[in-house]
Design a protein around this nucleic acid. Structure first.
Lengths: 391, 391
DNA sequence: AAAATTTTGTTAGGCTGCCTAACATAATAA
DNA sequence: TTATTATGTTAGGCAGCCTAACAAAATTTT
């Protein structure tokens, strides 16, 4: 997930006490908070709180940004991560768009850019790499010294992302660097885009109240992100959730074909089936998946039948997921998955085939991925600042 | 997983320092150890070590059991969990046998019993419950005061086991108590038998060197246990790894049927297919699965073809597992799964369909399950003794 | 307007749990 | 014997938290 391009941090910080580290972490996730709030959450006494804040202010990692008057009593001081906490770049290197967010460590948006690729890319390749390079370069020129040091660049990739221990031979992830040469000494955080969307559903989306769930993306491609106890499941080779390689077809007398389920479930194959089976009487077949969903929503019987059939197939995939990891909650996303029309059938089929599972529809639109990688990049930056980096 | 039948522990212990707790934990997993060994592993200074051991000896949680002479220098004192650490019962409530082990907290065998059920049970029911009751009662009468207090009874069940948060309506686990009334105030640890086997492969078996892997059991029934970072994945309803509910059949134009894959993959259906397709020229068809495997091992072409075909199906299931959780290692167990004959094909098919995964054959025989629940029961007992119980 | 109440923040001092340094003990090697 | 090496104890220190008491700053009551 992480590619460190240098060990130095822009702002090395004196070793902090445990309470100061915990406080900085909390400031980074909560954003502006009063001292009493921080003390309450951390369970620290007021003297310890004072000491921790003094430590952080000393290192420029926290700043007082105001005061808050409660119903009664003295005003409470409000703090935020300080100037040395710096900022991060979060980039969604998507197949159709490059989305970039520049954010503080507590995820206040400083700047954002979106670039539409001239042509849609099926695989991560040079076009995407070049576009990312351009967007990052452009964002760098607009950087403001007041933002503090750039702590990390997070990039969400439409490819499997292999960790340090994994089998690095079978990955395309390095293609992101074919044209993009990141600034020296800035840590790079790489993560698969579906995993990023899962992270966003957890932190900003419909799965906020669940520490364990699966995010299933159904659209042009299919994928899954698994969150267990608040942590992404990545797997040995970054392949956890790569449901495009579920054994399929799987039945008595047939042999599965690698990657076949993605070819079957993807919108392209779906629309081919729809066109092939479209009744003469129902007029011209739908243009694309969006058209199909719209006609189904309008009550078109032929469209509804196809949507229903696809929802059953999605339900079967969800059932297989439940049978393996039993997440308790499955969030549906992606071009097709996010359509509320399929929810009832997916829920019904999954629960009939397997074990009790709640199914919800994603609420974050196109921003899910970039919000997820933003989260991961800030988490990584916090770990680096606190000297607790994993890799 | 856990059913506490009372809050009191037999031997309440004064609060311990962190180092003392860590030492007790280490003694429980390692068994007899010298002081320098403990200090090395825990990274503690010798004075702290002395203090920790004094604390534990004070509470009867550690005892000096000898001395060990190194190549040079003074003899090192050897310690073990003390008399108040007590012992546990581990019971494998299997479909055909009840296996019981009485062990110290560091898993030295104190006593063991095996009872063969009069008839093989497909489901957890009264027969099993009654047999467990008898075996536990018999073991209780043979208990020795020198064993110290009974800290826990662990029971491995051939059923899904639901945790405190899960949907408790759809479980058969309570059937274990239909005839078995456990001694009052003794904590009960319940776990699914396949999960137990996975635990045993991790602690005593072929997966000793892996913190993350999946254990796939193929025999009369099928099941899976998933170990992630040394911890069992249980899932919201204890259904993680319940691959008997993978969507199957799964192909264009067919609808999956709940539980169908177990009926297809289980030995019963396999042997029916074998009998149906057995060539006249090859003599009488195999008696049972063991006979089939033996003939295949002896080079019988018809038997080999069927074994090969089944191995391909198992490979497909493993591939689906890898596509979801990417464990890096899959251990094959169970009546059919543990046969080394199927290993090459399972490995080949899984790696062709999905991502790189190592496949190994289980080395623990019938004892896997009882060793696994023994491990879980001792872990639970240690947590209780240290006042760090989860539930 | 003064006093009482409530909340926030600081100062003083103490305790736990670890550490290092130095010494004591007990074995083997020279 | 003496030297060397490993083990274990004693003495003393320090980091990181705590409680108790006080100080400061707001609102409510009198």
């Amino acid at each position: 997930m992480t590619r460190l391009q240098g060990r130095r941090r822009a702002v090395p910080v004196a070793p902090l006490t445990g309470s100061a580290k915990a406080m900085f972490r909390l400031l980074a996730v909560r954003g502006a908070s009063t001292r009493p709030q921080l003390g309450e959450v951390l369970g620290l006494s007021r003297p310890t709180l004072s000491a921790a804040i003094a430590e952080l202010e000393e290192g420029g990692l926290a700043s007082k940004v105001g005061e808050l008057q409660g119903a009664l009593g003295r005003k409470a001081a409000v703090y935020r991560p300080g100037p040395n906490a710096g900022h991060i770049f979060a980039v969604d290197a998507g197949s159709t768009h490059i989305r970039l967010r520049v954010s503080t460590i507590d995820r206040r948006l400083l700047h954002s850019r979106t670039y539409r690729l001239p042509s849609s890319q099926f695989f991560l390749g040079e076009e995407i790499s070049r576009a990312v390079a351009d967007e990052v370069a452009a964002a760098l020129t607009e950087s403001d010294p007041a933002w503090g040091p750039l702590q990390a660049i997070g990039i969400a990739l439409p490819s499997r992302v292999v960790g340090p221990q994994g089998d690095t031979t079978a990955t395309r992830q390095e293609a992101i660097f074919s044209c993009f040469d990141p600034p020296a000494d800035i840590p790079i955080v790489l993560e698969n885009n579906v995993n990023c969307a899962a992270v966003a559903e957890h932190s900003n989306g419909i799965a906020r109240d669940h520490e364990t769930f699966a995010y299933v993306q159904i659209g042009f491609k299919i994928g899954m992100g698994i969150m267990l106890d608040g942590k992404l499941l990545r797997g040995r080779n970054g392949a956890a959730g790569e449901i495009s390689h579920l054994a399929f077809p799987m039945a008595n007398g047939v042999r599965p074909v690698p990657g076949e389920i993605e070819r079957y479930m993807g919108t392209e194959a779906l629309m081919q089936r729809v066109a092939r089976e479209w009744p003469r009487s129902a007029g011209s077949p739908p243009e694309d998946a969006a058209d199909l969903m719209k006609r189904a929503a309008d009550g078109d019987a032929a469209a509804l039948a196809h949507v229903e059939r696809h929802a059953e197939d999605i339900g079967a995939i969800v059932a297989s997921c439940v049978s393996m990891v039993d997440p308790g909650l499955v969030v549906l996303g992606g071009g097709l998955g996010a359509d509320p029309l399929i929810l009832p059938t997916v829920h019904e089929v999954a629960n009939r085939l397997s074990y009790p599972v709640e199914v919800r529809t994603s609420s974050l639109g196109q921003d899910a991925t970039v919000l997820g990688i933003e989260r991961l990049a800030t988490e990584h930056a916090v770990n680096l600042i606190l000297g607790e980096a994993k890799a």
